[in-house]
Design a protein around this nucleic acid. Structure first.
Lengths: 145, 145
DNA sequence: TATTGTTATACTCTATAACTATA
DNA sequence: TATAGTTATAGAGTATAACAATA
């Protein structure tokens, strides 16, 4: 828990924000599959981690408005990466499930993605990399809080 | 330096990428000054950290194409946040310098921004926050490599 | 001839508002 | 009446291509 009256904490917050914004801009460019946007990738990742979900749940998890998720899911479906099934209990809702093709694509793209980040991280020391690894779960927590 | 043949490192890379993308999306919404885009904020931050720079240098540092930086600099100038001076040695180039108003705005907005992130981070333990603080400089390094 | 910056244009992603169907 | 999802539309941000001015 940060103490904002503490100058170092304020500086760390600033540094974090700036770095996250700039790094995200670079990551955008490193899409493994040119036809997949960062959010589309993120949705596939969420489905892989958390299993099937409704469009509404996905919108909340990705911090995107429902109409945006409608579009994203439609694009993913047109690419054969997700399947839409009717919801068992509620006929308003739908259930989005990733296909095997999506799983294969994620696996294949993970290699490329890692190669890119690895090249970037090559100049990091073991200590620096360890700090990133330790922080990753905390960033995840912030991202989905 | 990550070892990509190591499964945990690959997972960490994945986690990092996903978290950075999602957190950046949330940060976008938390702009302190509604009239300033994330990249505009980032440019001001860069100018504050590194001092005056040419539009080309700024484009490279922010990983944006030159025409985009032209637009961003023009917007910042119209808001009275930067000043454009002729380059001393090269009449093609310009020198972008932040104004006192920009400095004051950065200082004021830092408080608001910190309040938001603090609220988010309130649920973090001291250990978790410490991990973020330790990782911040490394993320910065990745972001501008 | 190469480089810096700009103009013109188009594209991608996301949001808001209004609508439909179901609970 | 409230909720899940969609359609229609608009806006923000960025990119590419073509151009101007200077090195």
């Amino acid at each position: 828990m940060p103490d904002l009256s503490h100058g170092d904490d304020a500086a760390a917050v600033n540094s974090l924000r700036s770095a996250v914004m700039r790094l995200s801009r670079r990551l955008k460019h490193q899409r493994v599959d040119e036809s997949l946007s960062p959010t589309e990738m993120s949705v596939l990742g969420t489905l892989a981690r958390c299993g099937s979900a409704t469009p509404g749940e996905l919108a909340r998890k990705e911090h995107v408005q429902p109409p945006s998720m409608t579009r994203i899911v439609a694009l993913l479906e047109s690419k054969g990466l997700v399947r839409l099934d009717p919801h068992p209990d509620d006929r308003r809702q739908k259930v989005v499930t990733q296909t095997e093709r999506a799983e294969a694509m994620l696996e294949e793209s993970r290699r490329k993605r890692n190669a890119w980040l690895a090249k970037l991280a090559e100049e990091l020391s073991d200590e620096e990399w360890e700090k990133l690894r330790a922080a990753a779960p905390v960033l995840e927590k912030l991202a989905h809080t």
